[in-house]
Every structure is written in structure tokens, then in C-alpha cells.
Nucleic acid binder design. Structure first.
Length: 434
RNA sequence: UCCCCGGUAGCUCAAUCGGCAGAGCGACCGGCUGUUAACCGGUAGGUUGCUGGUUCGAGUCCAGCCCGGGGAGCCA
């Protein structure tokens, strides 16, 4: 799809020597006396338009000189191959129709800005060179996930955004009024996916989840996207195989299809592909603690991994690494115990390069009595979970699943400093505008 | 909730020991016929986050508050 009578800048190589129309925005202009270079942006790329005084109508030359950055324009001209042009092709402009002439200065300049200013102008910042490519990579990651799930035979389904119960009981939830009853924004669709998995076999869901934690770090948003899958008849090891294949396939597809974007973000695509070569290391919680201790971080059994510990694990392997066999106490009530009774069939996938936990997954308890026992142990009420217990009363099967943090995955692939750059309008503590 | 850092021109930042409020970019004016975040010359542009205090004198020191950034905890 492209605008009527217009070509898209990323297809310009197909029109060498032809007269074309490009509909877009003026990204920037450079001029030198009798020649000016318009950097024209259309969302698919940026092309340079050239106007020489004397070669074009003088009114046209003046019109172009008066245009401010981000004015919307329809440009007609001839596509010409030229080594001096930034993308190897440029447009010999013969006409410009101004859709809207910008009156005030566009706030986002090609120079530096601070994060506060950029976030206040996020609605405009997304047009910038460092920002738009990330959103195209986001598109590719989401598409790659959907295609992977589809290829593996999973059915797309949904859990509700509004829920009456917390999935894990601990995380702070956003509370809202539901016709006089308390309701919460979901923090995960997992429990609901367990129900749809029993109906449909193997299911997935990609959508937003919400955490009211007052976290202020480069790895946290209050609203973020999870890619969750729930697989009937699948046990722990097979669950990890599936996740490993997924991460491998997604990264390879993104590198394949968005090479230009990754290059503009200074990402080393070859190194990325090498890092996701299968298999990923799988180590136990206890082994992980040893590695963390060897890295000089003080930590003992019973503690969860902090951010520095996760970074140390990532550095040690320089690949995504699964940490398995967590102590039961560190994990939610629904995870299947291992034969020792002390650890559970859970695994976190830790990213290299300090991006932290990309995936959290586990095999779920399928035995009714055990699940009831675990609910009681955690001091959780039975009533809100009756429907969940029903899943163990009517045709319970071994099943496993996981949730992947979409923003962290994108931040890792794009080598970004902060997850807020991976989503068009990030929601963070103390930021709800724009 | 806690810890650290910061708030000076539209933006990014300087301002020595407490002593005249500065630069680059952007804007505007002018110059330049191949620029690549173009470049060169000039002009305009300030409630130094707020309130109070110390002082002859506060951007600078002190107290409180507000806002922002990073991190911890918790998590994906």
C-alpha cells in the first residue's frame, strides 16, 4: 500500500531515471548559495531532493527555502543515481506542493536532547532518525513472534485486561472500579491461557500487561507487552526447547528483514546471530549462584538474582542462558515441584549484555490436591481461584508455558540504553503524557 | 519506599575562592552551485526550578519543597 500516485522512498531504486511523486515531510534542509538539498522523509526512508537555482523555477526555489522542518509536502521529480547522495539515489525536484507549512520550529533537532525533553515530546521524537527505526524493529519482532507461534501450530487467543484477581498475588496492581467492585489491570494472562490451552491445545497471546511497581530503571515500564504461550502436554525440557527455538528464529528474522534499521542503530547483526546459535546453556540455580559468586557478587542460596547478578551471568556466557531449578519459595504457587520437592520446574532466560530476564516460564502444577496445598501455603484465598482449580478437576494434563518481555527483547536486539525507546508511548512512573 | 546525581537562553551545557550571565546548536539577517548533524559572518534571546535564610554581595553556601535522571528492592 502506498499513497495514490506516489512512490515509497524505500522502493526508489526501482524508479531510476523516472519522474515520480513522493509524499512526505521535510526532515532537514542544507543549502549552499544557488543549490539546496531537501532531506525528504516518508516513513519508509529519507531521500535527498536537489534544487539548483537557474535550473528550476525561481518561485519553486523560494518556496523550498521558506519551508521549515517537518512541513508536509508533495514533491515531484526525477530519480537519479548519484554517489554523493546519502542513499545512493536523489530526486531532481521539479515541483513542490505544500500540504501544510510549519510555522513554529520543530522541537526535535538533529542535535542532542536530554531524556526528559525527548519524553515530553515523544509524539514528535518518534519521527527522529534514532527513534523510527526502533519502531520498525518492534513491528518485525511482533510479526516474527506471531509467525513463529503460527508456524508451530499455536492458536492466538486472549486473556482479559480487566481481572478480579492477581495472578501471582505479590506484584502491585493497578486498581480500578468495576461497577462498585474492585478490579485490576492484568499483570499476566497466564492463568487464563491455561484455560484456553485446555480448550484449544496450544495457545499464545501478545498484548499489554500492567505493573504498578514504582520501579525507575532502564528495564521497567508500568505498561509493557508480553508474548505468552501455554502448551498442553508439554513438560519442562520441551518448554525450554520451544523458547530457545523461538528466540533463535525471531532474532534471525529481524536481522534478515531489518538489516538497514539495525545498521542505523549501530547494531552488530553478525554478533547477534552468533549469540542465538542453539543450544543455549542451561544451568541450575545453584550453578548460577556459583558463577555469580566467582564474579565477585555476594549471594547465597535462597536469594533471588539482582540486576548485577543477571548481568554477571549474561557476561559469563555471552549468550542467552536458562536458569533452572529455582527454590520453591522464590517462585509463584502454581509451579510444578521437581522430584526433590524443594525446587520447581521453572526457568528464566537471562539475556547477555545486561538486559536481564527476557523470559520467565515453568511447568504448571496439574494435580488438584497439590495446587490447593500450595495456595494454602502462600496464604492465598480459594474463592477467586475456583475456576483455576476447575482446570485440574476436568481433564488435567501436564502443561507448561512462559512469558517473554517484548520491550526487553527489542532493547536487547537494538542495543538500546532504555526500554522506553522500544514502544511508541511508554508508560513509566511519573510519566503519563503524551 | 530507599540511595546517588541533576535543574542556568527554545535545546545541550559552561560559569575558578561567593564578585559584570557565557558558548555551541536552533531561530532571524547576510554569504556560499554538491551539502552529508553542511560551513562562514552577524543579530536577537535569561524570574539561573520554588520559598525562605546567611552575606556588603548568592547561579554558587544553608534549610525546606517541587520536578527530572540513574540505581536498589520487585519484576518481564
Amino acid at each position: 500500500m502506498r499513497a495514490v500516485n506516489a512512490i515509497s522512498i524505500d522502493e526508489v531504486d526501482q524508479y531510476d531515471g523516472e519522474d515520480v511523486i513522493i509524499k512526505g515531510w521535510l526532515f532537514n534542509r542544507r543549502s549552499s548559495g544557488g543549490i539546496q538539498f531537501l532531506q525528504i522523509r516518508d516513513g519508509s526512508g529519507i531521500i535527498q531532493g536537489v534544487l539548483k537555482e537557474g535550473s528550476v523555477d525561481s518561485d519553486l526555489f523560494e518556496t523550498a527555502l521558506d519551508l521549515r522542518r517537518e512541513s508536509s509536502i508533495v514533491v515531484q521529480g526525477k530519480v537519479k543515481r548519484d554517489e554523493r547522495a546519502p542513499i545512493g539515489y536523489e530526486l531532481e525536484v521539479s515541483d513542490i506542493s505544500v500540504q501544510q507549512s510549519v510555522e513554529d520550529d520543530f522541537p526535535i533537532t538533529p542535535k542532542e536532547h536530554g531524556p526528559g525533553f525527548l519524553m515530553d515530546h515523544r509524539h514528535l521524537w518518534i519521527r527522529a532518525k534514532g527513534s523510527a527505526p526502533v519502531l520498525r524493529v518492534r513491528h518485525e519482532v511482533l510479526q516474527a513472534l506471531r509467525e513463529f507461534f503460527d508456524r508451530e501450530g499455536l492458536i492466538a487467543t486472549e486473556g482479559p485486561i480487566l481481572t478480579g484477581v492477581s495472578v501471582e498475588g505479590t506484584t502491585t496492581l493497578f486498581e480500578t472500579d468495576y461497577f462498585g467492585e474492585d478490579a485490576y489491570l492484568t499483570q499476566s494472562s497466564q492463568l487464563y491461557l491455561e484455560a484456553t490451552a485446555a480448550a484449544l491445545g496450544e495457545v499464545y497471546w501478545i498484548g499489554p500487561v500492567f505493573r504498578a511497581e514504582k520501579s525507575k530503571t532502564r528495564k521497567h515500564l508500568t505498561e509493557f507487552w508480553m508474548a505468552e504461550a501455554e502448551l498442553s502436554w508439554v513438560e519442562h525440557d520441551e518448554n525450554l526447547d520451544f523458547q530457545e527455538k523461538m528466540v533463535h528464529d525471531v532474532v534471525n528474522r529481524v536481522v534478515d528483514k531489518r538489516r538497514d534499521e539495525l545498521e542505523s542503530l549501530d547494531v552488530d547483526s553478525e554478533a547477534l546471530v552468533k549469540k542465538v546459535e542453539r543450544p543455549f546453556p542451561r544451568i541450575s540455580y545453584e550453578e548460577a549462584i556459583e558463577i555469580v559468586n566467582e564474579a565477585g557478587i555476594d549471594m547465597s542460596t535462597g536469594e533471588d538474582f539482582g540486576a548485577p547478578a543477571e548481568t554477571a551471568l549474561g557476561d559469563h556466557f555471552d549468550k542467552p542462558v536458562f536458569i533452572e531449578a529455582f527454590p520453591r519459595e522464590l517462585k509463584p504457587f502454581y509451579m510444578e515441584p521437581m522430584p526433590d520437592g524443594e525446587t520447581v520446574y521453572a526457568a528464566d532466560l537471562i539475556a547477555p549484555d545486561g538486559y536481564g530476564e527476557l523470559i520467565g516460564g515453568s511447568q504448571r502444577i496439574d494435580d488438584l490436591e497439590l495446587l490447593e496445598e500450595r495456595l494454602d501455603e502462600e496464604g492465598l484465598p480459594r474463592d477467586p481461584y475456583e475456576w483455576y482449580l476447575d482446570l485440574r478437576r476436568y481433564g488435567s494434563v501436564p502443561h507448561s508455558g512462559f512469558g517473554l518481555g517484548v520491550e526487553r527483547t527489542i532493547a536487547w536486539i537494538c542495543s538500546l540504553d532504555h526500554v522506553r525507546e522500544t514502544i511508541p508511548f511508554p508508560r513509566q512512573i511519573n510519566r503519563i503524557y503524551p
